[in-house]
Structures are given as structure tokens and as C-alpha cells.
């Protein structure tokens, strides 16, 4: 497995690690069986992400994408954070090995899940705003590749 220098740097020195005590939106994606779980914490004020953090169980790429994704949405208005694609995370990390692309999809979905949680807490149905969260880890788009039937 060969990672870019940027991936290794974010893995070795991850930004925004840990729980956020006053988070008002928390999203978790993935499962232990597949070997990666991402949890994103958001502190949202006036529709802007004023602070965010993550906790991740997973490989080097999972930790690096979590770190980069939180960097990319920090300080951003919610509508902009929702537009963050896994592709943008991959590009910001100077690429990921093909088998690790699913980690970036997890990061994108975990952010969406955290924003959805924020709206749910406000009593607002998040689906029209955030869309459907894809936590079907065996889904082709996420492509974790592990066999959930075994």
C-alpha cells in the first residue's frame, strides 16, 4: 500500500481529533465488521460549522480522510459543507489507492449524517435538505468489498 505524503502527514498528525463536548450534530457511519467507523462531531451556529472533530476506527486512509474532511468543512456554511464530495477529499489528499476510495465516501457520508442529526435535533426533517444517508456499507458506491453475508 503506497500512500501520498499528504495522507501520511494527516494520518501521523490528524487534525480535529476527539469528541466535541458542545457538539449539536453527531453522525456515525460504517461498522466494525468492515473495519471502519467514522464519527463526526459538529458545532453549528447560525447555519455555519464553527467547530468540528472526529473519532475514527479504521486504516490510515480512514484516519487521514477524516482529518482532511473536517479541515475542509470547518468554518463553512452548512450548504457548502453538504456539497463536499468524496472526490474533493481525495484530491485534497493528493489521491488515495483505489481500494481506499471508500474511506473518502465514508467521510462524506459521516458529515451528511452529522448535519442530518443537527436538523433532527431541531425538529426539522433532514431528508429534503441532506438527502438519504448511505450507510449501506456493502453498497457498490462505498465498495468496502467485504462480504457481509459470511
Amino acid at each position: 500500500m503506497i500512500y501520498s505524503a499528504k495522507v501520511m502527514e494527516h494520518f501521523a498528525n490528524p487534525r480535529n481529533v476527539g469528541e466535541l463536548a458542545d457538539a449539536n450534530g453527531i453522525g456515525e457511519i460504517g461498522n466494525a465488521k468492515c473495519g471502519d467507523i467514522m464519527k463526526i462531531y459538529l458545532k453549528i451556529e447560525n447555519d455555519t460549522i464553527v467547530d468540528c472533530s472526529f473519532k475514527t476506527f479504521g486504516c490510515g486512509a480512514a484516519i487521514a480522510t477524516s482529518s482532511m474532511a473536517t479541515e475542509l468543512i470547518k468554518g463553512k456554511p452548512l450548504d457548502e459543507a453538504l456539497k463536499l464530495t468524496n472526490k474533493a477529499v481525495v484530491e485534497a489528499l493528493d489521491g488515495l489507492p483505489p481500494v481506499k476510495i471508500h474511506c473518502s465516501v465514508l467521510a462524506e457520508q459521516a458529515i451528511k449524517a452529522a448535519i442530518a442529526d443537527y436538523y433532527t435535533r431541531l425538529g426539522i426533517d433532514p431528508t429534503p435538505i441532506v438527502g438519504v444517508i448511505d450507510n449501506d456499507h456493502d453498497h457498490h458506491d462505498i465498495g468496502c468489498g467485504c462480504d457481509l453475508d459470511d
Binding site: 500500500m1 468492515c34 473495519g35 471502519d36 479504521g58 486504516c59 486512509a61 480512514a62 481500494v99 468496502c144 468489498g145 467485504c146 462480504d147
Partner: peptide, 11 residues
């Protein structure tokens, strides 16, 4: 023996 450390993604 981790899945993620191999190309196969199976543990």
C-alpha cells in the same frame, strides 16, 4: 491480519 492492510479487504 487486518483486511485494510491487504489488497483484498477481507480479514
Amino acid at each position: 491480519g487486518s483486511a485494510c492492510a491487504s489488497a483484498s479487504l477481507d480479514p
